[in-house]
Design a protein around this nucleic acid. Structure first.
Lengths: 238, 238
DNA sequence: CGCTCATTTGAGGAACTTCAAGGTCAGTGG
DNA sequence: CCACTGACCTTGAAGTTCCTCAAATGAGCG
């Protein structure tokens, strides 16, 4: 498939309207790029979407031409690699406001919706040439990339710790990335998290139970958690 | 320490002259940046070094101001994190021709010589402002960063495979990065490799023995290896 | 309620680590 | 020339962590 399929029909699901009834069709770039009106216009001009995807929909396949970059408007996107054996690795999660996709596709990763999402597509070449003319865009692109590099390095370090420590660190980091809300509403499935942490879902579940017994977190309902003791959590993270 | 210490005296070692007697004092940027003379001059103008380091010398500390980027002239550089417990993670190896150091220091990684090395220092700000004026430099910076991001993603994926597979993949990748020489002269210690792969040195050693018994590699002498059967190696890598 | 899917729990086994000892090799000094 | 030393790597045996397989429980929805 040579192009991103913007028209890919989401699989119909019962709660469709709940999720997508209120999606904004215009995106607010002001948070990241300031109030430069010319710049806003330029960005809007090269944007396509937002595309809307249900959980587990494939946004871009391993093997797709990587002409577009992705900007997450809402929901969570995962970048992952699936092997013939059926095992899967989640390489990264992207949250609203994240821009990614410099090289994820060339190297046979697949971009998928980890929850119901809205994603904006930006033609890479256009973005690049805009960057040569606008230093604010250039430095944003660079910092977005280096942030992801840092995150990837953290990820490597994390995956050589114990299951309990990985789990604690993951929830803490997620909580921070989500803006430190009162309750942590985990937006992706435990299977996704397990594949991100290099654990089985059983081990992840046991680790969560263990963290709860230690009084570090508590389950409120379903995947809604309460981080109980941040200092202890920090110590756990080593 | 606010500045990189270019004068840091290497620990004297017996084979000093063997290693550094022939180090070039001018660096050939032509390979990566073409024959643009103006550009060559600009790059030379913002370069410091090459600094020369013996194995295990610290090139830049966790906590140093991250004003400089690094360009490996010869040898191997490791970027690593050491914990109070004494455990260590090697996050990346950099080989001759690699440019790195966008964010490695801010996030408390330490840059160290994994073998005797020569490293060039480039002031980040100067490099950045050069990039805004020269698109060749800009695109080189971007591709260097995205390559490292890709490599980091591969690293994450690798570390959730078996010890034997990690080891095979590591040697294969190293062999490719070194230009596919007849014999693979492993330039870093097995301890460094183990810390990179998230294994103990014992498990690494056992994996190598195992690979040798399987006929995939053979030990020529010390850390000089011969990759015997590339196809089988490829299959091993899954 | 009864379905499905996601998560939790348990028991046994495999992979890796830990601890401890032995081996190898280059440099050093008798 | 040969033993001695220290750094580095290899091997063995026991212990831990995590995985696998199997089953039970729970949550969400018609």
């Amino acid at each position: 498939m040579a192009n991103i399929d913007f028209e890919r029909t989401p699989v119909a699901r019962p709660n469709e309207t709940k999720i997508f009834g209120t999606v904004e069709t215009s995106v607010d770039f002001a948070k990241t790029f300031g109030k430069d009106v010319t710049l806003q216009r330029a960005l809007s001009a090269l944007q396509r979407g937002p595309g809307r995807f249900y959980r587990d929909n494939v946004i871009a396949c391993d093997g797709d031409a990587a002409d577009y970059m992705f900007f997450v408007v809402s929901g969570v996107v995962r970048s992952c690699k699936v092997f013939e054996s059926g095992t899967r690795n989640v390489v990264a999660f992207y949250l609203p406001g994240d821009l990614f996709g410099w090289s994820d596709l060339k190297h046979s990763l697949s971009i998928e919706a980890a929850s119901d999402t809205a994603v904006l597509f930006l033609k890479r070449n256009a973005l690049l040439s805009l960057a040569t003319r606008n230093s604010r865009v250039a430095s944003y692109l660079l910092s977005a990339t280096t942030n992801q590099l840092e995150r990837a390095h953290e990820h490597v370090i994390l995956n050589s710790k114990t299951a309990k420590c990985r789990t604690a660190t993951f929830f803490k980091e997620l909580w921070v990335r989500l803006g430190q809300p009162k309750y942590l509403d985990v937006p992706m499935s435990y299977q996704d998290i397990a594949d991100y942490l290099g654990l089985t879902i059983e081990t992840l579940s046991r680790s969560i139970t263990d963290l709860e017994r230690s009084g570090l977190i508590s389950r409120v309902s379903g995947r809604k958690l309460l981080l109980q003791n941040r200092f202890a959590l920090g110590r756990m993270m080593n």
